[in-house]
């Protein structure tokens, strides 16, 4: 079975369109008849990653790949990067500005929530260059033809 790869651009500080990439992923997973809980977990993780890319990244891209074994989501941005990933992963740690907090973000819960929802999560980052997330879902994933 052939699965196409999808790419969605993410715009820096575009709070009106933020979330669109994740909603596209949701739509595609729905169309592939993924079960509800899996769609929810994947979309929540995508959305947290997308908001981070909007807020801290300087433009980014979300890509979706699927095969018989799982769902693979990559979120890359060209932002300032994360100096201390261990610290960033801690619940409650946030460098969000007042403007971002007023929008309802900046609780320092996004990255831990991605970790919680994903079956595999890796994050790599270089200061001054950007950040790359790899988020994988396997449990609950069955292809129709299987």
């Amino acid at each position: 079975m052939h699965y196409p790869r999808h790419e969605f651009p993410i715009k820096e500080m575009d709070f009106v369109r933020a979330g669109e990439a994740s909603l596209q992923v949701k739509k595609i997973l729905r169309e592939m008849k993924a079960e509800n809980d899996l769609v929810r977990r994947a979309t929540i993780a995508c959305y947290e990653a997308e908001i981070n890319a909007v807020v801290y990244g300087r433009d980014g891209v979300m890509s979706l790949e699927v095969d018989d074994e799982g769902i693979y989501i990559y979120v890359e941005d060209k932002g300032d990067g994360i100096p201390d990933i261990e610290q960033a992963m801690m619940e409650g740690f946030s460098t969000a500005t007042e403007e971002i907090r007023e929008m309802g973000f900046g609780a320092g819960m996004g990255l831990p929530n991605i970790m919680k929802n994903a079956d595999e999560f890796t994050i790599s980052s270089a200061v001054g260059e950007g950040t790359r997330l790899k988020i994988i879902f396997r449990s609950g994933w069955t292809t129709e033809e299987a």
Binding site: G19, Y47, I51, M103, G104
Partner: peptide
Amino acid sequence: LTGLTNIQVVNTADISG
């Protein structure tokens, strides 16, 4: 129940079901 009214409230609620 929330005091915020921006579009991300709708996205968040939608995604969370």
